[in-house]
Amino acid sequence: MNQDRKSRQQSQQQQQPQQRAQSQDPKKGGQQPSPEGKPQQQMGEGSYEGTRDYNQRTEEYLKSHDVKSDAEAARPRSEQEAREMKEAEREGRSHSKGEH
């Protein structure tokens, strides 16, 4: 029994350096380098590059577009469309893990 446990521990110890090397590889969900060259922790489904790109595009949009006009154009054009939009929002929220 002790022999079995020892061989499992040795096997796990041999695998650990490989796992650490893989966790550092950004393509495998590991750490990503920052602009300063320091590793950053990749978390969740997003990526730092994707977040920077989204933030930059959002900032450019807000500077170059009339947001009030865009919001006005997105308003429902009838009571029926307003009800449909509310129902679609309710349906979408029912699938989320966050706010309901």
Rank of each mutant, 00 (worst) to 15 (best):
M1F: 09
Q3A: 13
K6T: 15
R8H: 11
R8D: 13
Q10D: 15
S11V: 02
S11R: 06
Q14C: 06
Q14M: 15
Q15H: 07
P17G: 00
P17K: 03
P17L: 10
Q18C: 01
Q18S: 12
A21D: 15
D25V: 02
P26H: 00
K28D: 05
G29Y: 01
G30I: 03
G30H: 01
Q31N: 13
Q32A: 14
P33G: 01
P33C: 06
P33S: 01
S34P: 01
K38L: 09
P39A: 05
P39Y: 05
Q40A: 06
Q41H: 13
Q42W: 00
Q42S: 11
M43Y: 14
G44A: 03
E45M: 06
G50S: 13
T51M: 13
D53H: 14
Y54E: 14
N55M: 08
R57M: 12
E59C: 03
H65N: 13
D70T: 10
D70A: 10
E72V: 12
A73D: 07
A73L: 10
A74G: 01
R77F: 11
E79H: 07
E84W: 06
M85E: 15
M85Y: 10
K86G: 12
K86Q: 13
E89M: 14
E89I: 15
R90N: 12
R90V: 04
R90K: 13
S94W: 05
G98I: 01
E99W: 11
H100R: 14
H100K: 11
